Amino acid sequence: MDMKVTQEWTRICDVADIPPLGSRVLERESGNVAIFRTAQDKVFALLDRCPHKGGSLSLGIVHGESVTCPLHAWNIDLASGQARAPDEGCARHFPVRVDADGSVYLGLS
């Protein structure tokens, strides 16, 4: 029997509400989510916690498709949440969808 899990999407904001090369934070009891926008208007979402010492990734510097943690300069890949070598660790990432009208949706399930 095939069972498909359907992603539930929650509208968060418009792309224009996220500063280019910056982030916006979705506050949640289970951990805040940082929603990032690159210079090319790609949008990514990570748990707002560096895997190293728990720094707020939303306060980091976005460059290319990475964010640099403000505490100890770890570079985290925005698409996967993986720390870039030589560092090791992973921040939880969340699926993101941007509709043609610029609405940003986050998959929180």
Rank of each mutant, 00 (worst) to 15 (best):
C13W: 02
I12K: 10
T6M: 15
E8V: 15
R92F: 08
L21V: 01
S58P: 07
I35W: 12
R97C: 09
D99K: 15
K53Q: 05
A34P: 06
P70I: 01
G54L: 10
L26K: 15
R28E: 15
R11Q: 14
N75E: 12
S58Q: 04
I76L: 09
L57W: 02
S58E: 08
D17S: 14
H93C: 11
G107F: 01
G107W: 03
I76E: 04
G60C: 12
S66V: 05
S103D: 12
S23C: 02
P70V: 07
R84P: 00
T10C: 01
S58F: 00
S58H: 03
C90A: 07
L26I: 06
L108Y: 02
A100D: 15
C69P: 04
S66M: 06
G22T: 07
S109D: 14
D41A: 12
I35K: 02
S103Q: 05
F94W: 13
P51A: 07
D77Q: 14
A79H: 08
D17E: 14
F36P: 12
Y105A: 04
V25R: 07
R49H: 13
P70S: 06
D2I: 14
C69Y: 12
S30P: 02
G55Y: 10
R37P: 02
P19C: 14
S23N: 06
T38D: 00
G107A: 12
G89L: 13
A16E: 09
L47V: 05
A73K: 11
W74M: 02
W9E: 01
R92Y: 00
A45T: 00
G89E: 08
T6G: 11
C90T: 11
P70M: 02
A45Q: 03
M1N: 15
I18N: 05
R49I: 02
T6I: 10
S109P: 10
V43D: 01
D87S: 11
F94N: 03
A16T: 08
E88H: 10
V25K: 01
H93K: 07
L21W: 02
T38E: 11
L106R: 01
R37Q: 07
T38G: 08
D99S: 15
R11K: 15
L59T: 00
A91M: 06
H63N: 13
R37L: 01
G64N: 10
D2T: 08
F36T: 05
G22M: 07
P20K: 10
R92Q: 15
D48G: 01
S23L: 00
I35T: 10
M1V: 13
V43C: 09
R92I: 08
L108N: 03
S66E: 04
M3I: 14
V15K: 12
E29G: 12
T68G: 09
G60V: 00
H93P: 03
G107Q: 04
G107R: 06
R84Q: 09
T38L: 06
D41Q: 11
S66K: 08
D77T: 07
H72D: 07
N75T: 13
A39L: 06
G89T: 13
Y105F: 15
T10R: 05
L106G: 05
S23A: 09
V33H: 10
G64T: 04
G89R: 08
Q7M: 13
C69F: 00
M1G: 15
S30W: 12
A16C: 03
G54E: 14
L78M: 00
T68A: 13
R49Q: 11
L59W: 09
I18Y: 00
P20I: 08
